[in-house]
Design a protein around this nucleic acid. Structure first.
Lengths: 186, 186
DNA sequence: ACCTGAACACCGTTCAAGT
DNA sequence: ACCTGAACACCGTTCAAGT
């Protein structure tokens, strides 16, 4: 039994996420995570700070699972694909996903995601003054929707898909009317 | 020192909410609530079930603080006033408000609120097939927005107001295009 | 540097007992 | 019926010690 186990922050976060998936977010604690790793609780403190930092790390792990397409795709397609990927993360990790709403995401990964949305909106032709607030509104809605979906508020996946498609249609209609002046001569 | 204190479920929930307001949601526990009431922790169990039930009761307390105008007002005004009232609740109880997203609201009071939104949408002329999904989309957005606001995501109240007004404009634009056929002859 | 073992100050909850 | 007191099985975290 070596006392050097080669414990890793990434390994700890993976274990914590798996624990949340299996037994619920309430089951995620220093002692339980340590037990899954075959280690004393105190061994974790060197790698993740304390329990709060562990949960922040879980938020980071969730966000890095979101696939954001490269700039070769059209901006609206990028936004739609990112949203779909976030919803998929919510369905894969319904127990842990609530953390995204409960905790403010201040990690570098979260800020990258926001910048990607801003860039896509600018590229899509949204007025400079509206970009910031539109990003806040869209991400609020998409994260809220995904969280609702994860907590079972939409009953089944088909209905959630239909609801989301409806919301997208609604928003694109509104945005088309906002970003470009109404066709005057027709 | 009477052993009969006349403890009440409402009194307990009020105390728990005040405790969340003062010391954060994490501070809300059976022992802490009991201490505020000058009572043993075990005295609570007869009135609220256990800690889970206490938190469900907190959700109920938050929702009953929302002012929903009577049917004498126009349906859209009712929706806007309800949303504004929900945002006010979030600002009054920022710590506790996250519970609305973390816990599915299955209490009678929550279902009443949903029915009020449905009725207003029907009255506003939304197509029968769209009423359900539109209610889910709107409430998802409004609760998510209020929660974001409560957690400080919008920096200040002025910006939150501006963002919310922008979202309302966006949505009413889209709804006008959806509920009524586009004016053909102009 | 990395992990352990024992200990401390907390939790929620059960159970028998008091009035 | 309503509340108490003691006890049980848990937490997160500190601290000194081992290798």
């Amino acid at each position: 039994m070596p006392s050097r186990r080669g414990l890793t922050r990434a390994e700890i976060l993976d274990t914590a996420l798996a624990l949340a998936d299996d037994d619920g977010l309430a089951a995620v604690g220093m002692r339980a995570v340590a037990q899954r790793l075959g280690v004393t609780p105190m061994a974790l403190y060197r790698h993740v700070g304390d329990k709060e930092a562990l949960l922040d790390g879980l938020v980071e792990r969730l966000l890095t699972e979101v696939d954001v397409p490269g700039p070769e795709q059209a901006p609206v397609d990028r936004l739609l694909a990112s949203a779909a990927s976030l919803r998929a993360v919510a369905r894969r990790h319904p127990e842990a996903f609530g953390l995204l709403l409960a905790r403010r995401a201040a990690t570098p990964g979260a800020l990258d995601a926001r910048d990607a949305v801003l860039a896509a909106l600018v590229e899509a032709g949204v007025a400079r003054d509206d970009v910031g607030r539109l990003e806040r509104i869209l991400s609020t809605f998409v994260i809220g929707f995904a969280a609702s979906e994860a907590s079972g508020r939409f009953a089944d996946v088909e209905r959630a898909d239909a609801d989301f498609a409806y919301a997208v249609r609604l928003l694109t209609t509104a945005l088309a009317a906002t970003t470009t002046p109404p066709p005057a001569g027709s």
